[in-house]
Design a protein around this nucleic acid. Structure first.
Lengths: 159, 159
DNA sequence: TGGTTTTAGTTGAAGCTTCAAGTAAGTGAA
DNA sequence: TTCACTTACTTGAAGCTTCAACTAAAACCA
């Protein structure tokens, strides 16, 4: 039997830590956002990505890429955000297949009011635990992993 | 106006990378495990934690801690794993409030057969993208973040 | 041109997670 | 001892995510 190469001590530590962060961090941020505005971290990110886009709109596919989500998940969530008056769906002028998601003024007001508390939470829950060098290391290593998972992920396009 | 301290370039890179890893990595591992044995990453971890425990059993609370899950989530999942014959619930001799989750032989066989493919996937999806130094850095930084999120998390007890 | 394939997105159902409420047993204080 | 509090866990419902199937338009190509 060809034994698989098992994880060594550091590999196991890195993997278990990432796995734990993975459940704890979104849960903590969800709790904060749920209390502040009855929305999830994913909802917040959809609004945030739209707020940073030119004209505050993006095609569904591009928005899905920027939130690392499936089109199906995004479609359901946009429907929900639309019912809350934060997002609208519009036709794309050049390509009739495309749906454009557009952040409304109410949606913009929502993120603007939520952003400070959210950023504070991100600091309190992770960044404050780290030195500047740690942050730089995590950025570098994190981007390597993202590149491995999806070699043309949008966060790699920015640099 | 008291502007919240915004994220600087590295902080933003680190945060966005972690957020992306957070959705992409579990999704990729879920896909692999779903194909190999019709179970989720969380299911796998429950079985894995039990398989590593003395006697292959743990109280629900302890198992919840080791999988970073809520007791409610775990309870639902153990019910499902129980229906598949991989786990059993037993009474705790000393404390009648406690339910002990016990990995069955069938459950053990399942992880043993699944583990090599899963470890390969973890390597292919993240570890192979990193140098040994990267792995050590990620372990160190990851544990700092875990400590911030939950200062007596079980992965910190091991060291 | 017409037919096939690909791209973009939506939908409903099934399964998973969270939330709130509830049960039962152990702990602690007077 | 008794009563209040806490701990350990379960449950059902509501909401979220995934999956598979579907529609429609654009691109390809022969």
């Amino acid at each position: 039997m060809t034994e698989p190469r098992w994880l060594n001590a550091d590999e196991r530590r890195a993997w278990l830590a990432l796995l734990s962060i993975n459940t704890l961090l979104p849960a903590a941020l969800d709790t904060q956002l749920q209390a502040a505005g009855k929305l999830s971290l994913f909802d917040y990110n959809v609004l945030a990505m739209l707020s940073e886009a030119d004209g505050r709109f993006l095609p569904m596919s591009e928005l899905a890429a920027r939130t690392s989500a499936s089109l199906s998940r995004l479609s359901h969530v946009v429907t929900k955000l639309q019912r809350r008056g934060w997002v609208e769906r519009e036709a794309h002028p050049g390509d009739a297949r495309v749906t454009v998601a557009h952040l409304t003024d109410a949606g913009m007001d929502t993120i603007v009011s939520l952003a400070p508390g959210h950023v504070d939470a991100v600091r309190a829950l992770m960044l404050d635990a780290m030195t500047d060098d740690d942050v730089a290391d995590l950025a570098r290593i994190g981007e390597k992993i993202v590149a491995r998972l999806d070699d043309d992920h949008w966060i790699l396009r920015e640099r």
